[in-house]
Computed example of a mutant assay.
Amino acid sequence: MGDIAKGVLGGGWSLLVGWILPTAINLGILAITMGPSLRQVPVANQIFTASPGAKALLLLIASVLTGLILNALQVPLYRVLEGYLLWPARLYARRSRHHRKRRSDLADVLTRTRRARRSAAERMQSAGTAQGPPTPDGEAPPAPDPRNEVLTATQQALLGERLARYPVQDDQVTPTRLGNAIRRLEEYGYDRYRLDSQVLWNELTAMAPEQARRQVDTARTSVDFFIALLYGHTVLVAMALCATSVDSADPPVLLGTAGVLCALCPLWYRAAVAATDEWAAAVRALVNLGRHPLAQAMGLDLPQDIAEEREMWRMVSRMSRSRFHDRAVALNRFRSPPGMGEPR
């Protein structure tokens, strides 16, 4: 039982919550809203006239199989929403320019509001130490309230959160909000340490602490859940519109279902984008905590100087993603003596 529990709470839990559960929700919506309209279809009629136990078993089997298929197809499913797959070149370029401008505007607004808050705080502090001329009734003039002039600290934090969902470099910006939110966690290791976490992902996850790996899997599960819901709703909308042509169809119910699901799709997309915040934090911890044991496992001596460390990881990443070149012997100066592995 202990091994089964560990399996469920490990990778199996991510599969169950991330893909099978939303698939079961979508199949339940299909059975409740479209089932009566599909009774003229022979296969559907046999399903809906079966016993409750048989229906529950069939729903479970269909949810598991469909969830496994979606899990196997998660790379192309993600890439469509990230803007990497099935996007025309012109649309890709136009939307990327739009998000680069949006990122720049957010950075400008955040900078201005921070300066305004500092100026307002300084004015309020100076007003408290040196009061101005008294008012006609003999009271000192009130100090200016920075909240009346600039954004509050909470509003600034939310603005910074939106800006943080973009990659650091302009050339890394993608045409979709989800693509940018995921790209910022993919570029973290390379931007800070020149460690290409996408190339060295298997090595990094193999050597990182178990808690850090578990946090990454758990955080991604939330994003998977909303992505699966989004794709399932899209399929259900298409089925509802097609089912209106069936003789036994109930157009008001089908159209109403399609309308509600269409309204929910943007909500699930925004929820997926917001859920990447926890995913990005987990990947950040994975890189920060895993790069030291990774260097030791690869027989490298982690330099004390950050510039030297960045140079080491740059060479390691380059050697991992391309063929060997004689210039790679420069990595020898970072290699640990046999039997050693402690940082210098």
Score class of each variant (00 low, 15 high):
1 M>L: 11
2 G>H: 14
4 I>Y: 01
12 G>W: 00
15 L>D: 06
19 W>S: 02
19 W>N: 01
26 N>L: 14
36 P>E: 12
38 L>K: 09
41 V>C: 10
42 P>E: 13
44 A>N: 04
49 T>K: 11
51 S>Y: 04
52 P>I: 07
52 P>Y: 11
55 K>P: 02
56 A>L: 15
58 L>A: 15
61 I>P: 02
70 L>H: 07
70 L>C: 05
72 A>C: 04
72 A>W: 07
73 L>N: 09
74 Q>K: 07
75 V>P: 00
77 L>Q: 05
77 L>F: 08
79 R>Y: 11
86 L>I: 05
88 P>L: 12
94 R>T: 12
100 R>Y: 04
101 K>Q: 15
107 A>G: 08
114 R>V: 13
116 A>G: 06
119 S>H: 09
121 A>V: 08
122 E>M: 13
122 E>K: 14
125 Q>L: 14
131 Q>P: 03
132 G>A: 15
133 P>C: 06
135 T>C: 03
137 D>T: 08
141 P>L: 12
142 P>N: 09
142 P>V: 07
152 T>P: 00
159 L>W: 07
176 T>Q: 02
177 R>Y: 06
178 L>M: 09
181 A>S: 13
188 Y>T: 05
193 Y>S: 06
193 Y>N: 07
195 L>Y: 10
196 D>E: 15
196 D>G: 05
197 S>L: 09
198 Q>K: 11
198 Q>C: 04
200 L>H: 04
200 L>K: 01
203 E>L: 06
207 M>N: 15
211 Q>W: 09
211 Q>V: 13
212 A>H: 07
217 D>A: 14
219 A>N: 03
221 T>Q: 03
221 T>D: 00
224 D>V: 00
226 F>Y: 14
230 L>E: 03
235 V>Y: 14
237 V>P: 06
246 V>E: 14
259 G>L: 10
260 V>M: 03
263 A>H: 06
267 L>Q: 11
271 A>S: 12
286 L>K: 00
298 M>W: 15
307 A>E: 15
315 M>R: 15
321 R>W: 05
321 R>Q: 14
323 R>G: 10
324 F>Q: 08
324 F>V: 09
327 R>G: 14
337 P>M: 05
338 P>M: 01
341 G>L: 06
341 G>E: 04
342 E>R: 02
342 E>P: 00
343 P>V: 07
343 P>G: 01
